[in-house]
Design a protein around this nucleic acid. Structure first.
Length: 546
RNA sequence: GUUUCGGUAGCUCAGUCGGAUAGAGCAACGGCCUUCUAAGCCGUCGGUCGGGGGUUCGAAUCCCUCCCGGAACGCCA
């Protein structure tokens, strides 16, 4: 049981004893100012109105009824009615052997033990290279998956490959045109085609293997289509792998057409009476489930809109037995969310099965001017190029730092500079410093057994700050997982790195007497373990040397 | 016009069930390397939380309204 849970329980008991109240939601928070103790509650102020007494009076009445064990050193009341708890740091130093024993399992939770989440992210059309905008979604989905796993959820990571629609047709025509152009045949790309350099590269690639045999071949279209999707998808997979983003399932939209999946979903929706015909089209009554209007699922030319196969796809996911589906989409799809959620509610018969987390667009700045991504010109900053120039770690860290719904600016001149503008180096440096210090200690034959540690020797402020942060780690995981606040992790990393650098700038551990050194080396080892684990959650390398 | 995200320090951003003096990094300024890695440490400067109303013990946070910026509003995908 964490200290917060414990304090919540003790407060609950105290309120019962003092006022015969049973209150579920008691907030235990960590004050920013250390003079306010390590934990505090505002319950006295919240009860002021109901009890018709002043917060200070309530707190004072309550105080004798609060009984805590040795972990709590003192309990104080502060104006305007806060109850502040100061913890015993020696007790909390016990976290060190715990971390040393558990290693990277420290901070693992069980809050998701009966859940199996499916998280869908990236899901781009295989019509080109991944660009910087896709990278944000990739980083967010991957990090959220890792955090949820750490919190005890079973997680399946999924990529929906849109290989069935008109866009693939446009892609095929684009490849064909580029292919012909390699033979100096004048052939324009379609208006809605794909103009990126990767399509030209793909065409050149086909030319080297197939020569001119596809110029007037009857099966050329089918070849370009299949080969193009395959080629581009495998490039996307390569880029994601280099970005340390992985998937358990790549689900093909086209496969829905090959099976009976769409018809099954369609029959279900019809059976339940959620469809009607109008003007030769088939409509879905999404407005009955919170959408602003009904939507067409089969057009009057009898082809499907994008929505129907997407419902079938989500239906398929539901049938695989997940307890929740999470889609991570770009903010430009926000208008699509109500109809999709309405549809899923129709399929499963209840609300809340599908959660959609939106992330806002990335604005790229170069030379102080916004770089507009354009499909027409094929101008877009590819993830591949960015990884080549700055590396994976700064990009992963940078994306992880930001709240999903912030509109973020990415200044290329800064990002490419590898300056300490990017806090990833600060965090990695903290880890590297510990590594080299432990190495040094070992070379000096210092005691690294981490046994018979005298924790009372960790009574200096810098050690206590580190210990408090280590104790806090499971709470950080819980908040990040349940509230989907991915950026809580880099924030924590930064605080831990700051505390470490400050500790490091103090008295050299190497020069201390054996007992003092031994316990501090153990503390550092514990910090290293947690730092490494947290960095891993956001896909950033924990370096041993820099 | 409707929907949606945002507007917090010079810049990029935290502040996620309303809490104590609104924070961090960078930039700027001043110190610190014969001592475990200076990609570091210590300190200073920096704010009408877009404007105005309201709700209450207390509002950056909740409600109303207006202003500014991004995005979406198809029988496209």
């Amino acid at each position: 049981m964490t200290i917060q849970t414990y304090l919540t329980k003790q407060m609950h008991d105290a309120l019962k004893a003092a006022f015969k109240l049973s209150i579920e939601s008691i907030q235990i928070e960590t004050p920013k100012d250390k003079t306010h103790g390590d934990f505090s509650t505002n319950i006295a102020m919240q009860l002021a109105k109901d009890l018709r007494r002043s917060p200070m009076q309530i707190a004072e009445t309550l105080l004798p009824f609060i009984h805590c064990d040795a972990r709590v050193e003192s309990i104080e009341i502060a104006r305007p009615g806060f109850i502040n708890f100061t913890t015993n740091k020696r007790y909390f130093a016990e976290v060190i052997p715990t971390i040393l024993a558990q290693g990277s399992s420290y901070g693992n939770l069980t809050i998701g033990s009966n859940e199996h989440y499916n998280i869908e992210y990236v899901s781009v059309n295989p019509t080109g290279s991944l660009h910087i905008g896709h990278a944000r979604g990739a980083a967010a989905g991957d990090t959220l998956s890792r955090i949820l796993k750490k919190a005890g959820f079973e997680v399946t990571r999924e990529f929906y490959v849109n290989d069935g629609g008109n866009q693939i047709h446009q892609l095929t025509l684009s490849i064909e045109a580029r292919y012909k152009q390699t033979f100096n045949i004048d052939c324009a790309l379609p208006e809605d085609g794909y103009y990126g350099p990767e399509i030209t590269r793909l065409a050149e690639h086909i030319k080297t293997t197939k020569k001119d045999t596809l110029l007037n071949h009857p099966d050329a279209y089918d070849f370009f289509r299949a080969y193009g999707v395959d080629y581009l998808l495998s490039e996307i997979k390569d880029d994601l792998a280099r970005f340390d983003v992985t998937f358990d399932v790549f689900f093909s939209e086209a496969s829905l057409y090959q099976t009976d999946a769409i018809n099954q979903t369609l029959s279900l929706l019809k059976e339940k009476g959620y469809t009607y015909e109008l003007d030769g089209a088939l409509w879905l009554k999404t407005s009955d489930f919170g959408d602003s209007k009904d939507r067409v699922i089969i057009k009057s030319d009898q082809t499907y809109t994008y929505l129907l196969p997407d419902i079938a796809y989500h239906h398929h996911k539901v049938s695989r037995g997940y307890t929740k589906l999470i889609d991570i989409l770009g903010g430009d799809h926000h208008g699509y969310v109500p109809r999709l959620q309405a549809s899923i509610e129709m399929v499963v018969g209840k609300k809340g099965m599908l959660e959609v987390d939106l992330l806002q667009m990335v604005k790229v700045i170069e030379d102080g001017v916004e770089v507009k991504m354009s499909k027409r010109s094929g101008k877009a900053l590819s993830l591949r190029d960015l990884i080549d120039s700055v590396g994976k770690d700064p990009i992963r860290y940078f994306f992880a730092m930001r709240s999903l719904n912030t509109h973020m600016d990415l200044d290329l001149d800064l990002a490419l500079k590898q300056s300490n503008e990017n806090p990833v180096y600060y965090a990695q440096y903290a880890h590297a410093r510990i590594s080299s210090l432990l190495e040094k200690a070992q070379s000096l034959s210092m005691d690294l057994s981490f046994q018979s540690l005298e924790f009372e020797r960790l009574n200096d402020e810098k050690s206590e700050t580190l210990i408090t942060l280590l104790v806090e780690y499971p709470q950080v995981i819980e908040e990040a997982a349940t509230k989907r606040i991915v950026h809580r992790i880099p924030q924590y990393i930064n605080r831990l790195a700051t505390a470490l650098h400050s500790f490091y700038a103090g008295d050299p551990v190497i020069a201390m007497d054996p007992s003092n050194a031994a316990v501090r080396l153990a503390l550092l080892k514990a910090v290293q373990i947690v730092l490494s684990d947290a960095l891993n959650l956001i896909g950033v390398t924990a370096k041993n040397k820099m």
